[in-house]
Amino acid sequence: MTEKKELLVVEDLHAAVEGEEILRGVNLTICESELHALMGPNGSGKSTLAKVVAGHPAYAVTQGSIRYRGEDLLEMEVDERARKGLFMAFQYPSEIPGVTIAQFLRHAKSAQTGEDISVLDFYDDLKDAMNELDVDEKFAERFVNDGFSGGEKKRNEILQMAMLKPDFALLDETDSGLDIDALKIVADGVNTLHRERGHFGVLIITHYQRILNYIQPDFVHVMVDGRIVRSGDRELALELEAEGYESTRGQLTAAGS
């Protein structure tokens, strides 16, 4: 265990939006090649944590630190984080009318590698990735998320992840609203990266333990009111599904008193 390298280390993280504190002391360590799941009731701050990690400007870190592969993540610009191998699949990705997925991905890919990639190589990779994800080739010629269904937006996020091959990915409710086939495809996307890139780590934010049937998590965490109140293994997810979050709330009050 000790030789495992740390990917993401969150320490005593406090973050506020519009003056209101949402994260109230988050501690979380994710090492290379680990799969973590983060669960918790609506409004507990899961997406806020994800956005702070990605660098969203609306969220102000008021206390604590995040280190990514040993570097101070909070010092990095949003694009720099991405270029250093951090990827976030958003719960509600933006629409970019007039820009095709292919165009967008080419820009992203060359920003990442720092050089213009050959059009042919790029389209080969894109085709392969689309095949894996079982999306039609025309998909890449559609404008980014413009008029997409919820499921299409999620697939688009996973397609981007497959193309950008990050070292660490954060998936924010990518499984919500997906049928079982789509869910398997998302899980495949994660598992493929995990298999191909040994050090690839992931944090999956989810409401349902359903996706955890396809992505075996090493750790499961529960967030309540801006703090991680319990951590455990896969059994915890099953327990939560059976009993709900009420028991964790009780523990929080007990622990906090």
Partner: peptide
């Protein structure tokens, strides 16, 4: 923010959005 989260600089992101516009 979305475009930058994929590695594009702010400048590139802004241009791509205008282009799309």
């Amino acid at each position: 923010f979305y475009l930058m989260s994929r590695g594009l600089s702010r400048d590139q992101a802004e241009k791509l959005i205008v282009y799309g516009f």
